[in-house]
Design a protein around this nucleic acid. Structure first.
Length: 272
DNA sequence: GCCGGATGGTAAG
DNA sequence: TTACCCTCCGGCG
């Protein structure tokens, strides 16, 4: 589930598993043969996450940039790994340790010079998990835009790491309708939104799941959400049916009663 | 066993 | 807005 929390988990895990020693690297699929050849035998120093982007810093200033996109997946094997599949873009293995990591289906897997790293970073807004003081930058960006807050939250130049699930849950928790113009939000609402997103991302980083319903989980079962992918089901707070519609090619979810389009106004139909 | 959609982002029209 | 990338999984039969 590649929203920001899982990307930070990968950064932590891959640092723990692989950093500090020379690694074997190869590309079973062949599409990253040249890059893997550069990495093979080198030492991985650190892995850094910003939003949904991973930066693997290797010795000699070499940086591997990975973005999973919608389909990308890491597989981690402890001990002798199964043979890599034909889809495996990159395989990395600790020559002396037990861990092998396979990467398949990423939208980006590339070596970047420092200028390239800077270029990627320059397109990313503050990451609530990585950017102290990001709240002010976020607030300024919201004031500048006329787009609906729902669209703005998915814009990685405004805030990095939020995906469709965290968008839906954070807007519900803050009582904000996704179609409200971002510039119309009150300063208090903007501060609460940043804090809510940061809290949800931190919880996700800790647990690896997007479980947002207050009170924690009672027993096993899938993570519980308020509105994300719950369209047609009753709102957990007011029993109104959760609405959903499509905007900019993505599904949007909201409770029409708990998230009024105009602050203080009565609930309206779900679809604007 | 097949189909459609999914947590994302870019490029083309 | 649409297509595409290219992987996994749930629903359906």
């Amino acid at each position: 589930m590649p929203e920001g929390h899982s990307i930070h988990r990968y950064a932590q895990q891959h640092t723990a598993d692989l950093a500090g020693r020379p690694l074997r690297a190869w590309s079973p699929q062949g599409r990253f043969r040249e890059g893997a050849g550069v990495l093979d035998g080198r030492v991985l120093e650190t892995v850094e996450a910003h939003g949904k982007h991973l930066f693997y810093h290797w010795q000699d200033g070499i940086c591997l940039h990975v973005h999973l996109g919608l389909f990308g997946v890491f597989r981690r094997h402890h001990g002798p790994p199964p043979p890599a599949t034909a889809q495996t873009r990159l395989a990395v293995q600790d020559a002396d340790g037990p861990v092998t990591v396979y990467l398949a289906g990423p939208s980006a897997c590339e070596l970047l010079a420092p200028a390239g790293v800077q270029e990627v970073r320059s397109r990313l807004g503050p990451d609530p998990l990585a950017s102290p003081g990001g709240s002010a930058v976020f607030a300024a960006a919201l004031r500048r835009r006329r787009s609906p807050i729902g669209a703005v939250l998915l814009d990685q130049r405004v805030i990095a790491g939020v995906g469709n699930a965290f968008r839906a849950e954070a807007l519900f928790l803050c009582g904000l309708h996704p179609e409200r113009p971002s510039a119309d939000l009150e300063p208090d609402e903007v501060r609460a939104l940043w804090r809510t997103i940061r809290r949800l991302l931190r919880a996700g980083l800790r647990t690896g799941e997007i479980h947002t319903v207050a009170g924690g989980r009672r027993g096993a079962g899938p993570p519980a959400r308020y509105v994300y992918r719950r369209d047609g089901e009753p709102c957990r707070r007011c029993q109104e049916r959760v609405a959903s519609w499509s905007s900019a090619g993505r599904r949007v979810f909201a409770c029409p009663s708990c998230q009024p389009v105009a602050p203080g106004a009565a609930a309206t139909a779900g679809s604007p």
